[in-house]
């Protein structure tokens, strides 16, 4: 057990932070929603009911989609784009998909390489891009989940104000949907761009997200 905890401490740590945050968010969101209901002379709802409400779902999914979009772009962009001096960038002569030897595929696959690293063809290509594909799929799925939950919330609001409900595809063209999506995207793009440039001059001893403290400022990708 101790060994398991040590070998998985990074994902356990973030898993606990995730659970604690989502529980706290749901409680705060529930209280906030009930205050709103009371202000409109509506009856408050139970905590359990709030957990499967579109209000809570939209708040969750709106943030999920932007995080996975961020990873999707970061994984894709760092294949081809470089930043001199950044720890987030590959070396300046390594842009692109790299050689089979560097990627240890085909005849350069080792004893314990994944089986699909050795093979050729469609399944190999699928596996060779699986991280990007899965992040992209989760982005699209959470963006879809955001759209249907936010749509439900939007229509409940419309009816509250004696306006007519809209269809899902109509909702996708509303400023409400795009404002919710874009407000999250802008912050993600700023954050990853900041990581790319701040690691040129700034250091954190011991972190693989940073270059070694003594690395020159113009040294690129020295711990990636």
């Amino acid at each position: 057990v101790r060994r398991f905890l040590r070998e998985n401490s990074l994902s356990i740590f973030f898993g606990i932070l995730f659970l604690a945050s989502i529980v706290a968010q749901s409680i705060a969101g529930w209280k906030d929603f009930n205050e709103e209901l009371l202000a409109h002379d509506d009856a408050p709802i139970t905590y359990g009911r709030y957990l499967y409400s579109s209000e809570f779902g939209a708040a969750l999914m709106e943030n999920w989609q932007s995080e996975f979009l961020q990873f999707f772009f970061y994984i894709a962009a760092t294949i081809w784009f470089l930043q001199k001096g950044s720890n987030e960038s590959k070396k300046l002569n390594e842009a692109g998909l790299e050689s089979d030897e560097q990627q240890r595929v085909g005849k350069w696959a080792g004893q314990s390489s994944p089986k699909l690293a050795r093979s050729k063809g469609f399944l190999h290509s699928l596996y060779a891009n699986s991280l990007l594909l899965v992040m992209g799929t989760i982005f699209l799925a959470s963006w879809f989940a955001e759209s249907v939950t936010a749509w439900t919330v939007f229509n409940a609001d419309q009816l509250d104000h004696e306006e007519s409900a809209v269809g899902w595809s109509k909702y996708l063209t509303t400023p409400d949907f795009w404002e919710k999506s874009l407000q999250n995207w802008q912050s993600e793009f700023l954050a990853v761009g900041t990581m790319a440039v701040f690691t040129i001059y700034l250091r954190q001893r011991g972190s693989p997200e940073s270059k070694p403290v003594g690395a020159p400022h113009d040294e690129t990708g020295s711990s990636g």
Partner: peptide
């Protein structure tokens, strides 16, 4: 070699459950 799949599977299950559950919540207008 210690298994490395436990946390991977756990994260996948949490994400897929969340996506499916809240897609359904939205579609069913809950």
């Amino acid at each position: 070699m210690a298994p490395v799949r436990t946390m991977f599977v756990l994260y996948v299950v949490v994400i897929v459950t969340g996506l499916v559950f809240y897609s359904a919540v939205g579609i069913l207008h809950k």
